[in-house]
């Protein structure tokens, strides 16, 4: 199975100490490596106001990470851990690689079109100077 890329965001309760959040992150990292995956990056967004109340709380501590794996088991296990972890209120995993592939395809498509465009405009350009003197002649 080819490698897949995932976004993983989870929200901790705002009153958890930083050490506990770090503990959650390290356990996730070990779990991912055990199962044959890898956590590419971890980005703590910090305390943010949530758009609606979750567990009667208005704020949450957001952590964002990018997970890379070729086994579906990795995501399954990570989500199970998040569900069990006490400070975690909410989590979301989104598969990214297909969107990145699409993005790549569109970019290549646009580049190809951009590369083709100059060739089209070059033949179009010579007539332009030709028409200008014609248009200028009647006025002069």
């Amino acid at each position: 199975m080819e490698e897949r890329l995932y976004d993983l965001i989870f929200i901790c309760r705002p009153d958890t100490p930083e050490a506990d959040i770090d503990k959650v992150i390290t356990t996730l990292e070990t779990v991912a490596t055990e199962k044959g995956g890898k956590i590419d990056s971890v980005n703590k967004w910090g305390r943010k106001r949530m758009a609606y109340r979750v567990q009667k709380l208005r704020e949450g501590y957001y952590v964002y990470m990018v997970v890379r794996s070729s086994q579906g088991e990795v995501v399954k296990e990570l989500e199970r851990r998040l569900k069990v972890a006490d400070p975690v209120m909410k989590y979301l995993t989104v598969r990214l690689d297909e969107e990145l592939k699409r993005q790549d395809k569109l970019k290549r498509h646009r580049e190809r079109r951009a590369a083709r465009r100059p060739r089209k405009t070059v033949p179009a350009a010579p007539p332009m100077p030709g028409t200008e003197p014609q248009a200028a002649a009647p006025t002069a």
Binding site: I9, I11, M50, A51, Y52, V54, G60, K90, L92, V94
Partner: peptide, 11 residues
Amino acid sequence: RAQNIALLPFA
């Protein structure tokens, strides 16, 4: 997706 992770409100 943003609604699911409480970045945007559902209502």
